[in-house]
Design a binder for these strands. Structure first.
Lengths: 209, 209
DNA sequence: TTGACAAAAGCACGATCGTTCGTTTATTTT
DNA sequence: AAAATAAACGAACGATCGTGCTTTTGTCAA
């Protein structure tokens, strides 16, 4: 690994931290240069423009999420087991991501939703892929008989995304310790509803853990 | 109404528009002065500091929300009717608020959740009050017999907040036209679940509209 | 209508923003 | 080790940031 690639990675790591606390618009070249011990111009040369730096940060955030949350659950059996594990991993990610602040992509989703351009496209793509992943996970659960056949998997993904946002607001903004508990119960209710007519009517489903 | 109060109101209205598209950190004194036709210093004198301007904007946003969404439903009968009307009003507000961008408070909730200070306190207070309003609305529905007695009203509010966030992401960031449809179905599912054992088991409840 | 006071303007400040360019220092490759 | 290339620096750019002043303009009551 050559020098350039190594420092670029170091820059992005620090940039990710900064973004998680101050947002994409709070990510500033001068401050980032100071924290990495580089000169502004030296750092700048790695990206060519601020916007490209921001895009790189978003890409890095996605990769980080994939590594921490997505990839670990892929070896698990399709359907409910994988879905449950993903959920628990996602809640844990939201609760304390590998940066000082909250999930940068979640924050950027509301920060840039009215400003068209490459940045918004990047985040929109990330959110779309995530939703698709959830939706397909639910579809597998249907195929496996864990979920009822008439389940709307897109709606299922929509609801799960909602829980994640509510978690961030409750735990991070309001700082309520029982937030994670709400998350789990909301998720349990959703899973129970999705499984309603599959095995039985009472919502008693086979657990993973 | 004296001159000062009038221009202050005009400033705040324009500031609210700006914040809705560019966020609280994108709200800049120079740009705001330009749009209102005032000088930077003339505008600045109305607030004393940028932070106080931001606080004023957040207060204005809350008042606007109260006027458009909260107040209209207060005359309605307690319980489900009022709750349903509030829901529809809230979805409409999220779909197209009275500003060019999205709801500033929702955006600021994720923008400032890691930066302690008066601004975060203001938003946190707003979100707490909103959640309390929902929670009490659900409690009234329990009292009225519309919802089951063992309903966790705090969890109910948590879930509803989640739907609102998911709506913004789906409709505003992703621009999916069927987003509002998801919102209504998710909300319907939540209401159905909350009403489950009240009148009957099928989720068939008395409608308002 | 004049005098008191509020509101806005004008100007300047230090700081920081993103960006460019020429130079110097490291790292590769030959 | 020398030549070629990549990486980082230093200094400066125009612009804009938030924030102080002083002065001018406008408003409102006596």
């Amino acid at each position: 690994m050559s020098k350039g690639v190594r420092t670029r990675a170091a820059i992005l790591e620090e940039a990710l931290s900064l973004t998680s606390t101050d947002g994409l618009s709070g990510l500033t070249i001068g401050l980032l240069a100071e924290r990495t011990g580089l000169s502004k111009s030296g750092l700048f040369a790695h990206f060519g423009s601020k916007e490209q730096l921001q895009v790189a940060v978003l890409r890095q955030a996605q990769e980080c999420f994939t590594t921490h949350v997505i990839r670990p659950v892929l070896p698990l059996p399709r359907g409910l087991p994988r879905l449950e594990a993903f959920a628990e991993g996602w809640w844990a990610w939201n609760q304390s991501p590998p940066f000082p602040g909250g999930c940068p992509i979640q924050a950027a989703s509301l920060e840039l939703d009215d400003r068209p351009g490459p940045l918004r496209d990047e985040i929109a793509g990330a959110q779309r892929r995530l939703r698709t992943f959830i939706q397909q996970g639910a579809a597998m659960a249907v195929t496996a008989g864990h979920f009822r056949p008439d389940l709307d998997c897109t709606l299922f993904a929509f609801q799960m995304v909602g829980i994640a946002f509510a978690q961030t607001m409750t735990c991070r903004l309001l700082g309520e310790p029982e937030g994670l508990d709400f998350v789990r119960r909301a998720w349990r209710a959703q899973v129970t509803d999705a499984a309603a007519a599959a095995h039985n009517q009472t919502g008693e489903i086979s657990h993973v853990d």
